[in-house]
Amino acid sequence: MTDVAAGVLALGVALFLGVYLVSVLDRFVSDLVAGHGLTANVFWAGPRRAVLLLLQQPSRTERPDAEAWAFAPALLGALGALGLATIPLAPELPLADNADGIVLFGAAMALVMVAVFLHGWSANSVFPLIGAYRFVALALSYEMPLALVLISAALPAESLSVGEIIRSQTDVWNVIRQPLGLPIYMVTVAGLAFWGPLRLPDAADLSGGTRAEVSGPALAAWEVGRSMVLVAAAAMGAAAFLGGWLGPWLPGVVWMGLKTLVLLVLIVWSGHHLARVRTERFVVVAWVVLIPLALIDVFLSGWLALAAR
């Protein structure tokens, strides 16, 4: 029982730190790119904004699907938390390191689509609805390569447990063993967290898309939920491709944190440098380039795993 309590506490702390880190990084990169000087404001801007949104009143639209509207951000955050729970942050800190954690992670990330769709659908307004359908059009295109590269990462470990996948990288990390894996994975993370070039459901050309009609606490919850998904996805990237907690000198949890941070920096950086791509173009590229590459990744990884036996 105490293990469960400790696990939940550790998960909460990890999520809180992760979400805060995303807000700091985002502000930091944004200020850097905009050519503003850097100030201590990067540390306070996120929390201040969250408090501001909590003081704002929620908006009303004509006949919204109120239950679904309230549920969508909660679902998004819960999926992020569930995804992170499958990842052991350190050898002595397996939260829910069950025998098929990577499947659970994949399932949680597949359901992100439901949260985004509900968020856009329930406002009963045009632009949010278009944003919602955009995401549905996009989802299969990033989910397929996501699942394939995660399966590749599991092949050398001969296990679906994330802990085993990390242990299998003791000699060489998957990022070297499977060079296709991490780049493809990072593209799918942008889709998953609708960040940067794949920020399609919440895009500026839809006046904010699924969030166009949202204000106040619901908007804060939505942004936190989106950051939670991003943190979970970055942590999984660190675990599946960068050897998770493995590393000399420092404690395992610090290594895990540092590797996650590197991936978060990459994705946040992309958000301020890469233009939003067109839905159609991404779908074409995903099916013509990403999915075949991911399949090659699976075959090569399987072949290498068999040869190593």
Partner: peptide, 12 residues
């Protein structure tokens, strides 16, 4: 650039 969600580059 703003319409492409690149607000930081847009400020630049």
């Amino acid at each position: 650039l703003h319409a492409l969600d690149l607000s930081a580059l847009s400020i630049r």
